[in-house]
């Protein structure tokens, strides 16, 4: 069976351009090429995830968790190595990414769903389901400006899950919901998993990863420290004291 997600010796570096984005800088660069400092976000990262598996990414800030998710989503390209994805991907990388504060909740749902690849027909069928799941129905025609962080996150999560992807990528956003919504998210993620869908979840929370994922990948400064069964990786991560 084809892996749902596969990273094969992936390396990714970013150049520090320090805001030097003007014509003048480009001309200087052409006359006097200089090597700008590079930042190695990922170094030789390899892993494979079978359909139906869930992977937790753990590590400190700047370890490369978000870079893995961005590359898996297809937002950026690796410098070396290759990434393959099978099936539809949906990513929840930032609280309300693509949401606009002046649009109402309902309008934002439509725009976001359309961007994530939902068709008009699917939108019509699933709109109520999204709103019900988010639990913000009484505010759905209010501008997003008046929403709390928790409400925004609930709406964003509800849209992402309604797109019904084969591969769901989630970056650290689940933390802002209240307990009740958190419980419903867990339930939704579980049913998602039992339907054979694949999840990659980046989190600082070792509890969350042990609870939801069979497998874990421990990152440090762009390198894989350890990968394998979630409980073992998390135990080692905790033992390391980071």
């Amino acid at each position: 069976m084809l892996p749902a997600l596969r990273f094969d010796h992936v390396t990714k570096t970013f150049v520090h351009h320090a805001g030097r984005m003007l014509l003048r800088d480009r001309v200087i660069e052409m006359i006097k090429p200089s090597r700008r400092p590079r930042f190695e976000a990922l170094k030789d990262v390899s892993f494979e995830l079978a359909p139906g598996e869930s992977l937790g990414l753990i590590g400190a800030n700047g370890a490369g968790k978000s870079t893995i998710l961005n590359l898996a989503t297809g937002l950026a390209q690796p410098d070396h190595g290759s990434i393959s994805v099978n099936g539809r991907v949906t990513a929840l990388l930032e609280l309300g990414a693509g949401f606009h504060p002046d649009l109402t909740g309902a309008e934002n749902v439509r725009v976001n769903a359309a961007m994530m690849g939902m068709t008009r027909r699917q939108m019509m069928d699933r709109f109520d389901e999204i709103v019900d799941f988010s639990g913000v129905r009484e505010f759905i025609n209010e501008p997003l400006r008046v929403y709390s962080a928790g409400m925004t996150m609930r709406l964003a999560f509800s849209v992402a899950i309604a797109v019904d992807p084969e591969l769901l990528l989630v970056d650290e956003v689940l933390g802002v919901g209240d307990q009740a919504f958190y419980a419903r998210c867990m339930e939704k993620i579980r049913s998602f998993q039992s339907a054979g869908k694949t999840i990659v979840l980046a989190s600082h929370s070792a509890e969350l990863i042990t609870m939801l994922c069979q497998r874990a990948l421990w990152m440090e400064r762009g390198r894989v420290v350890m990968q394998g069964v979630a409980a073992e990786v998390i135990a080692a991560y905790r033992a390391s004291g980071t």
């Binding site: 990513a91 990388l93 994530m116």
Partner: peptide, 8 residues
């Protein structure tokens, strides 16, 4: 925000 966060 869109270019960096949403696959469109």
């Amino acid at each position: 925000g869109l270019i960096k966060r949403v696959l469109v």
